[in-house]
Design a protein around this nucleic acid. Structure first.
Length: 833
RNA sequence: GCGGACGUGGCGGAACCGGUAGACGCUGGAGACUUAAAAUCUUCUGCCCUUCGAGGCGUGCGGGUUCGAAUCCCGCCGUCCGCACCA
C-alpha cells in the first residue's frame, strides 16, 4: 500500500468508476424509499466559484449519506442559463449570448466533475435550451388559459439616453450604469402572474414547512404582508371634484382617525392624474416624483415631497377640513394608493407634517394623564390608551380599531378589510436572453397565445447588440407573424420571461423530462417534493416564493398534485476571504498581496468579505483542486464554520484539510491487526457513529467533522486490537460521504468488495452509547469547586454525601453547614451555603 | 425607511431542554526524529495572580430572574444581510 494518498490519480480513477457503474443514476423503478436532494442550480457565469463548491459539497454529503442508508436518491444538476450577464458579455465582447453561455456551461461542468459529486448527469438541463423553455412556454399558455396571467401597466426604471429598461442593479446612485443618465420611472404594459390569488394559501402553507429555517418563513410571511385594516372614504370639497367625489384611503390604524392632519394620494392615483391633466404645475410635480429608482429602499428614503391640491372632509365630522396632498411616499401598489396622515403615530407622516408645518395631534398615550404631552422627535407607534379622540377616549388600540370599523360599517362610509403587501408577479422583461413570451398580439383578436403545436417560440440567432434596446423588438422579421386565430398580420410579444420563471419549475423537470410535454404527472409525483433543498439565503423570498406559487398554480390546473415543492430547506452561508489594498487603494488579488508584501511594498489588509470580482478577493477552486485534490477541498468546505454561516477561505485551512486526508490514509494503510477487544474504543466508535449520523442528518457538517477528528484521535492513541481494526474500517465508511475518493481508495486497498459508495452506513450499538461512569460537577453557590466520578444512575443521597465529603468543599464551607443541596442526577451537585 | 439575523480565547467555532464554558480545528510556543529541511510524533496554549496548594476574572455593554445564565427577560451598543428587473 502506498504511503501517501495521491489525489491526482485517485480522483480521476474513482470518478470514472462511478461514472461507468452509473452509481448515481436515479431510478423511478427502485423499491427503495426515495430522497430528492437538490442544490440551487448555478447560473453559468464562467467558472465555478467557492460558493458553488460549498453548496454542492453539502448536498453531495447528504446524497451519499442517504444512499448508504438505503435511499434511492435523485440528485440532479443543471443550468439557470438565461439572464443579463450573457447580454452584457454580448455587448462588451461581441459574442453571442448563447455561445457565451454554452461555453461557460462546458467549462463549469468539467470543473464540477472534478469534485466527484454524486450527480445524476443524465438529467442535466439548461433553461436556455428550447427543449426546456419550449415546455415552459406550454405551461405559460396553460396558466394563461386558466386565467392566471394578465396584462397591466407597470413602472420600470428607464434610461432616457440608452432608451432601455434597467434592472435595479443597473441603477447606481439614481443613474444608468452605462449612460450615467438620471433614471426615470416609466410605465409599460407588462404581463403579470396572479400570485396574489394564492396569497392566503402561500401564507398558510408556511406553517407546515417545519423543515424550513424560521428566518425564511418569517421573511416570506412579512413579504406576503397580510394586514387587517379599514378602507374608508373622505368626501372631497365640491370645487375639487372634476368627476371624483371622494377619495378612498386604507389604514391599519383606524383607531387614530381623530389624529388625522392630512390626506395624501400617490402620484399615480387617479385623482392626481386628473389634476395633472388640468394643471401643468401638478403635472410637473408628478414628473418630479418620478425621478429616482423603483426600489423600496429608494422610494422610502427619498426626501418627502408633497403638493397640496385641495380639501377633504373628515368622515366623522363634516366641519373638519383636511388638506389633500399628492405625496411621493404613498405607493399606488399598496392599499388604495391613498392614506390619511397621522403624524403623531406614523413616522413617515411625522416627517411629512414637520416639513409642511401640519398639526401633530396625539391620540394615543401611555395613560389618560399624558393626553397633552406633545409628540416630539419621532412618531410614537406603540400601544396605549386613546386620548383626544371623542367617543374612543379611554379605549385601548385594539378595541378602538374595532369601534371605528363597526361605526364606519354601520354608517356606510368604510369597511374593515384585509390587504396584502404581496403584489402580482411582473414577468415581462425587455431583453433578448430569456424565454420568449408565447403570445401574439393581433389588432382584431387581441392577445392570443401561441398554439401548442407551434411551440417552442425559438429565439432568433441573428441579432445585434450594437444599438440599445431590446434586440427582439428591432429584429427585422422575427416578430411579424400571422394571428393564429384570424390569420391577419400580427406581432409577436417581444418581451421575454423573468428568469425566475425558469427556476420556478426546473425541479419538476429534473424529476421527469419527456420530449413532448413539460413532465409526466405520475413520475414527477414519485420524486416530489424535494426532500432537501440547499442554496443561498439571498433566494429566501423571491425564488422560493415564486416556486411555491408556480407549483400551486400547476396544482390548480391539475398538472401535478403537489402544493409545496420543497419539504426541507437549508440556506447556506457565503464563502469569504480577506481583501487587500495597495497604497493607492487598488484592490489586490491574494497572490498579488503576498508578492507585494515580499517585495516590501505597503499592503493594507482589509476586512473579510464575500468573494467578489470587484474586491479581487476570489480564490478559483480549480487550481486548488489541482494542488490538493477534491477531498481536501470538500473537507475544508465542511470544516469549522456552521454551514448556515459564512466560511472564511484560508490557506492554512486547506493545508489542514490536506493533512487530515493524508492522516486518514496513513491510518487506514498502516493499521496493524491484533486480537483482543478495547471496550473504551468500541464505546468511542459507536458514539461517533451515532453523532456523525445525527449531525449529517441535521446538516451540521462542522460538528460531524469534529466528531471524525475525535474518533481519529482516539484510534491513533489506541494500541492494536480487533476493536481498533474494526474502528479503522468503520471510520472509512463514516467519512465516505464527505471525502469519497480517499475512502474508495482505502476501501479497495483493504480488499473490500464493491464500492464504498454502495456500502451501508454502519449501525451504532445502543448498548455502547451509554457510559457506565459519569463525571459529576460539585458546585458551592453555583461555583465549580470539584468534580467526582460516579456510576451512572447513582442515587441523589449518595451523590450528596460524596459531594459533602469532598476536601475542597469542606475547605470552602469552613465548617458552616449547607443551607440547601441541589442534586441533578448524573450531572452535578450544588451546595448552597 | 421597512424587515431579518448575528455578537463566546489570537482565529473559525463547540456547549442536549438553564447544570463542569472553550470540544474539534487553525495559529503560536517548547521538545523528539533528521546531517538538514519537509513530513510526522509528543506536549502546552482564555486572561490575571501565584508561596505551584490554590485563588480571582471571564461568553459585546448595563440591569434583572434563578441554588445555578453563553443559554431566559428588559434596555443599550456594534456588525452583517434582504427589500419585488441580479441570479
Amino acid at each position: 500500500m502506498a504511503s501517501r494518498f495521491n489525489p491526482l490519480k485517485a480522483d480521476a480513477h474513482w470518478q470514472q468508476v462511478w461514472d461507468d457503474a452509473g452509481s448515481f443514476r436515479a431510478s423511478e423503478a427502485s423499491a427503495r424509499p426515495k430522497a430528492y436532494i437538490l442544490e440551487m442550480f448555478p447560473y453559468p457565469s464562467g467558472r465555478i466559484h467557492m460558493g458553488h463548491v460549498r453548496n454542492y459539497t453539502m448536498g453531495d454529503v447528504l446524497t451519499r449519506y442517504r444512499r448508504m442508508n438505503g435511499f434511492e436518491v435523485l440528485h440532479p444538476m443543471g443550468w439557470d442559463a438565461f439572464g443579463m450577464p450573457a447580454e452584457n458579455a454580448a455587448m462588451e465582447r461581441k459574442v453571442h449570448p448563447g455561445e457565451w453561455t454554452w461555453s461557460n456551461i462546458a467549462t463549469m461542468k468539467a470543473q464540477l466533475k472534478r469534485l466527484g459529486f454524486a450527480l445524476d448527469w443524465s438529467r442535466e438541463l439548461a433553461t436556455c435550451d428550447p427543449a426546456y423553455y419550449g415546455q415552459e412556454q406550454a405551461l405559460f399558455v396553460d396558466l394563461f388559459e386558466a386565467g392566471l396571467v394578465y396584462r397591466k401597466e407597470s413602472e420600470v426604471n428607464w434610461d432616457p439616453v440608452d432608451m432601455t429598461v434597467l434592472a435595479n442593479e443597473q441603477v447606481i446612485d439614481g443613474r444608468g450604469w452605462r449612460s450615467g443618465a438620471m433614471v426615470e420611472r416609466r410605465k409599460l404594459s407588462q404581463w403579470f402572474l396572479k400570485i396574489t390569488d394564492f396569497a392566503d394559501d402561500l401564507l398558510d402553507g408556511l406553517a407546515k414547512l417545519d423543515q424550513w429555517p424560521d428566518k425564511v418563513r418569517l421573511m416570506q410571511e412579512n413579504w406576503i404582508g397580510k394586514s387587517r385594516g379599514m378602507k374608508f372614504r373622505f368626501a372631497l370639497e365640491p370645487q375639487m371634484r372634476g368627476g371624483i367625489k371622494s377619495v378612498e384611503v386604507f389604514t391599519t390604524r383606524p383607531d387614530t382617525i381623530f389624529g388625522a392632519s392630512f390626506v395624501a394620494v400617490s402620484p399615480d392615483h387617479p385623482l392626481a392624474q386628473e389634476y395633472a391633466s388640468r394643471s401643468p404645475e401638478v403635472a410637473a410635480f408628478i414628473e418630479r416624483c418620478k425621478q429616482g429608482g423603483t426600489t423600496a429602499a429608494e422610494l422610502e428614503t427619498a426626501e418627502k415631497l408633497g403638493l397640496e391640491i385641495g380639501e377633504a372632509f373628515h368622515p366623522l365630522d363634516p366641519d373638519w377640513e383636511l388638506p389633500v396632498f399628492i405625496a411621493n411616499f404613498v405607493l399606488m401598489d399598496y392599499g388604495t394608493g391613498a392614506i390619511f396622515g397621522v403624524p403623531a403615530h406614523d413616522q413617515r407622516d411625522f416627517e411629512f407634517a414637520t416639513k409642511y408645518g401640519l398639526e401633530i395631534q396625539r391620540v394615543v398615550a401611555a395613560s389618560a394623564d399624558d393626553a397633552d404631552k406633545p409628540v416630539v422627535g419621532e412618531a410614537e407607534s406603540g400601544d396605549g390608551i386613546l386620548v383626544n379622540s371623542r367617543f374612543l377616549d379611554g379605549k385601548n388600540v385594539e378595541s378602538a380599531k374595532a369601534a371605528v370599523i363597526a361605526r364606519a360599517e354601520a354608517e356606510g362610509w368604510g369597511e374593515g378589510t384585509t390587504v396584502w403587501r404581496l403584489r402580482d408577479w411582473g414577468v415581462s422583461r425587455q431583453r433578448y436572453w430569456g424565454t420568449p413570451i408565447p403570445i401574439i398580439h393581433c389588432g382584431t383578436c387581441g392577445a392570443v397565445p401561441v398554439p401548442k403545436d407551434q411551440l417552442p417560440v425559438v429565439l432568433p440567432e441573428d441579432i445585434d447588440f450594437e444599438t440599445p434596446g431590446n434586440p427582439l423588438d428591432r429584429h427585422p422579421t422575427w416578430k411579424h407573424v400571422a394571428c393564429p386565430k384570424c390569420g391577419r398580420e400580427a406581432a409577436r410579444e417581444t418581451d421575454t420571461l423573468d428568469t425566475f420563471v425558469d427556476s420556478s419549475w426546473y425541479f419538476i423537470r429534473f424529476a421527469s423530462q419527456p420530449a413532448d410535454r413539460p413532465f409526466d404527472k405520475a413520475v414527477a409525483e414519485r420524486w416530489l417534493p424535494v426532500d432537501q433543498y440547499i442554496g443561498g439565503v439571498e433566494h429566501a423570498i423571491l425564488h422560493l416564493l415564486y416556486a411555491r406559487f408556480w407549483t400551486r398554480a400547476l396544482q390548480r390546473i391539475g398538472m401535478i398534485d403537489v402544493a409545496e415543492p420543497f419539504r426541507g430547506l437549508f440556506t447556506q452561508g457565503m464563502v469569504t476571504h480577506r481583501t487587500y489594498q495597495d497604497k493607492d487603494g487598488n484592490w489586490l488579488l491574494p497572490e498579488e498581496a503576498e508578492a507585494a508584501t515580499e517585495a516590501g511594498k505597503a499592503v493594507t489588509p482589509g476586512r473579510v468579505e464575500k468573494m467578489s470580482k470587484s474586491k479581487r478577493n476570489t480564490v478559483d477552486p480549480e487550481p486548488i483542486v489541482d494542488q490538493y485534490g477534491a477531498d481536501a477541498v470538500r473537507w475544508f468546505m465542511l470544516s469549522d464554520s456552521p454551514p448556515e454561516r459564512d466560511l472564511e477561505w484560508s490557506e492554512a485551512g486547506i493545508e489542514g484539510a490536506w493533512r487530515f486526508i493524508q492522516r486518514l490514509w496513513r491510518l487506514a494503510a498502516t493499521s496493524e491487526t491484533a486480537a483482543g477487544e478495547d471496550k473504551a474504543l468500541d464505546r468511542k466508535l459507536h458514539q461517533a457513529i451515532a453523532a456523525i449520523g445525527a449531525n449529517i442528518d441535521s446538516l451540521a457538517f462542522n460538528k460531524a467533522v469534529a466528531n471524525v477528528y475525535e474518533l481519529a484521535n482516539a484510534i491513533e492513541k489506541a494500541p492494536p486490537s480487533a476493536s481498533r481494526t474494526a474502528a479503522v474500517e468503520t471510520l472509512i465508511r463514516l467519512v465516505a460521504p464527505m471525502v469519497p475518493h480517499v475512502a474508495e481508495e482505502a476501501w479497495a486497498a483493504a480488499g473490500r468488495p464493491g464500492l464504498i459508495a454502495d456500502a451501508p452506513w454502519p449501525e451504532a450499538d445502543p448498548a455502547l452509547l451509554i457510559e457506565d461512569e459519569v463525571t459529576i460537577a460539585i458546585q458551592v453557590n453555583g461555583k465549580l469547586r470539584d468534580t467526582l466520578t460516579a456510576p451512572k444512575g447513582s442515587a441523589r443521597e449518595a451523590l450528596e454525601e460524596m459531594a459533602l465529603a469532598s476536601e475542597k468543599v469542606v475547605r470552602v464551607l469552613e465548617g458552616s453547614s449547607p443551607r440547601k443541596v441541589i442534586v441533578v442526577p448524573d450531572r452535578l451537585v450544588n451546595i448552597v451555603a
